[in-house]
């Protein structure tokens, strides 16, 4: 038992003033907790390592096979000169990252409700800690994706070093939108059932099956508001050198990302004091 220091911090407890601004100091002090929670999720997911890793790889791989059969062979969709399997696998790897960040974040408060009701910690840690599992999953599926690319003799470009930027854009979008849904989930318990469906719809609007340049000119700006369109186009460009996203497309997507990320976390932060009472 150590000595009690004489200059103790004083905590003031008072009725909540709802604020969307995060307490950055508190958040920084909770970094150990954020890391360990993220690490816990990874550890649990890969505990039975074979199934964990296999799942991360099989999910995009099997989807790619199905897409290749349906869209590549039967529908014969253009793939920007790439073999359709390479095209769709790279898209699916990037898309899978976004989808899994979004799905995990949207359930983060409910999944940790025991903690939220029993101990105090900056609750913003929960959505932020949702990035690690998708990232590890991504590492596995991306390796397979690169393998397929090389297997089809498609050269990998040096611009691959820029790929993390597009990943960041996808992650921020997923966390922002997920945080928004996480709050709704606390209040409305039937919303989680809708999440997989939303993800499904979103997939079709995100340039995963088709290339963004296949979108008719007059709808392109609207479609570009979906950050996934620009980010996935950019991700593919960085790796195999397919046409880069236009500045407008990126700017529109990034605007949405920033709005969704800041807005989602702001909304989450404002609702946060009531989580323990509502759960």
């Amino acid at each position: 038992m150590s000595e009690i220091p004489s200059d103790l911090p004083v905590t003031l407890i008072r009725p909540v003033r709802r604020s969307g601004i995060p307490n950055f100091g508190e958040l920084w002090r909770a970094r150990d907790l954020a890391l360990i929670l993220a690490w816990r999720d990874v550890k649990v997911r890969y505990k039975q390592s074979l199934i964990g890793i296999a799942w991360a790889i099989l999910q995009p791989l099997l989807t790619m096979v199905v897409f290749t059969l349906i869209f590549g062979k039967f529908a014969d969709l253009p793939a920007q000169g790439l073999p359709y399997p390479v095209f769709s696998m790279l898209n699916l790897v990037a898309w899978g990252f976004l989808a899994s960040v979004f799905a995990l974040t949207s359930g983060c408060v409910l999944a940790n409700r025991m903690l939220v009701q029993k101990v105090h910690f900056p609750l913003l840690v929960l959505p932020l800690a949702c990035i690690l599992v998708p990232l590890v999953d991504f590492a596995f599926s991306f390796t397979v994706g690169l393998g397929i690319t090389v297997g089809y003799d498609v050269p990998i470009q040096s611009t691959i070093v820029l790929a993390p930027l597009f990943l960041l854009m996808l992650g921020a979008t997923g966390i922002g939108l997920g945080s928004f849904l996480a709050v709704i989930n606390v209040r409305y318990r039937d919303v989680p059932y809708a999440v997989p469906f939303l993800v499904q719809l979103w997939l079709f609007a995100s340039g995963v099956i088709y290339a963004a340049d296949a979108i008719p000119e007059k709808y392109l700006n609207i479609a570009s508001l979906n950050p996934a369109v620009g980010a996935i186009t950019g991700f593919r460009w960085a790796i195999v050198g397919t046409p880069a996203p236009t500045t407008t497309m990126l700017a529109l997507g990034l605007t949405t990302t920033v709005v969704v990320f800041v807005g989602g976390l702001w909304f989450y932060r404002r609702a946060e004091p009531r989580f323990a009472d509502t759960l």
Binding site: T11, L12, I13, R14, H120
Partner: peptide, 11 residues
């Protein structure tokens, strides 16, 4: 600090 008070303070 799991839940805030409706009224009152504590230090």
């Amino acid at each position: 600090r799991i839940t805030p008070p409706t009224e009152g303070t504590a230090t």
